[in-house]
């Protein structure tokens, strides 16, 4: 039983990272109906930019680990958001009026391009974050070993998700995003500047992805230029699992996927871990064709 709960916490930790990345997929999809395959590279970029800023500015030495990390996170998010907006301008905006799948191929090309850019700038070797940024203490909760950093990461991603939720639900621009997601044409007629909405989405989504990258870097310590593929695929799976285009769905999907993965691996087989995760996904989609929280769309009239 102890093993079960320990694995559950392991799953939650991974799942919260999936959820954070999944938000970026789902937001872009909601507004543009585009699967932004280059989003996984926003995550990688976040991890690498974090490392560069961390080592060059030494923020944590000047203003303490907590505030240093917060400032660092904001800087990384800002930079990745800019890359995201640039990506939209170059690779997606010219394709707005063309078939949807054309933009998907452009996204795949962008992903290859960004991944190789990172490789050429930082080299192909693993890069390692400094070790002493965050405290390495494990808490003993009812006999479970839970590293403190893990709790911090869970809190940070929950905070970001909550902030995003409030932003989408309560602010004017958030309302505009929701409107554009439902019907772009109608939103435009209502005087919503859809281009601004899209820009906003490409700022917020990549920023969250970049933050996830930074968290992975800070916690796990080791990053490399191909790390985005794996996380990106899982996060995309999570977004679909929750119902793509649906923000609470992405959070639920991410956490669920993380838990399914770790329990499936622990009780069935590690070698088949990803296959188990995809099998569960397929089974869920057979029962609920639009994901857990996705809107029911009439398939037949």
């Amino acid at each position: 039983m102890e093993q079960f709960f320990q694995q559950l916490t392991n799953g939650l930790a991974v799942g919260s990272i999936y959820a954070l990345i999944a938000l970026g997929y789902t937001m872009v999809y909601g507004v543009l109906k585009l699967i932004n395959f280059a989003h996984s590279d926003m995550f990688t970029l976040g991890a690498y930019l974090g490392l560069t800023l961390l080592t060059s500015l030494a923020l944590t030495d000047h203003i303490g680990p907590l505030w240093g990390t917060v400032v660092l996170a904001l800087m990384v998010m800002g930079l990745v958001a800019m890359v995201g907006a640039l990506l939209d301008r170059v690779a997606y905006r010219p394709l707005r009026e063309s078939p949807r799948l054309s933009a998907v191929v452009s996204a795949l090309g962008a992903s290859i391009f960004l991944q190789n850019t990172v490789m050429l700038i930082y080299g192909a070797r693993y890069r390692v974050y400094p070790h002493d940024i965050l405290p390495r203490v494990a808490l003993d909760v009812f006999g479970l070993q839970i590293p403190l950093v893990r709790i911090l990461i869970l809190c940070a991603s929950l905070t970001m998700m909550a902030m995003l939720y409030i932003f989408i639900q309560r602010t004017r621009i958030g309302t505009a995003i929701r409107a554009a997601a439902i019907d772009q044409g109608a939103a435009r007629l209502m005087g919503i500047d859809v281009n601004r909405v899209i820009l906003m989405v490409f700022l917020v989504g990549p920023a969250l992805g970049g933050a996830a990258g930074l968290m992975v870097g800070l916690y796990y310590g080791q990053i490399n230029f191909t790390m985005g593929w794996g996380y990106g695929l899982k996060a995309f799976t999570a977004a679909i699992l929750g119902g793509i285009g649906n923000i609470p769905g992405a959070m639920l999907g991410g956490v669920l996927l993380g838990v399914v993965e770790s329990l499936g691996a622990a009780y069935l087989s590690f070698a088949w871990k990803d296959a188990i995760a995809f099998c569960v996904l397929i089974l869920i989609l057979i029962v609920r064709p639009t994901g857990l929280l996705g809107e029911r769309v009439a398939e037949k009239v």
Partner: peptide
Amino acid sequence: FDALTPKEQDYTTVLTKMKS
């Protein structure tokens, strides 16, 4: 005797299992 998935970051699942 089992395999992990290479190129991931979190191996606590497999470690927890092995520890048990």
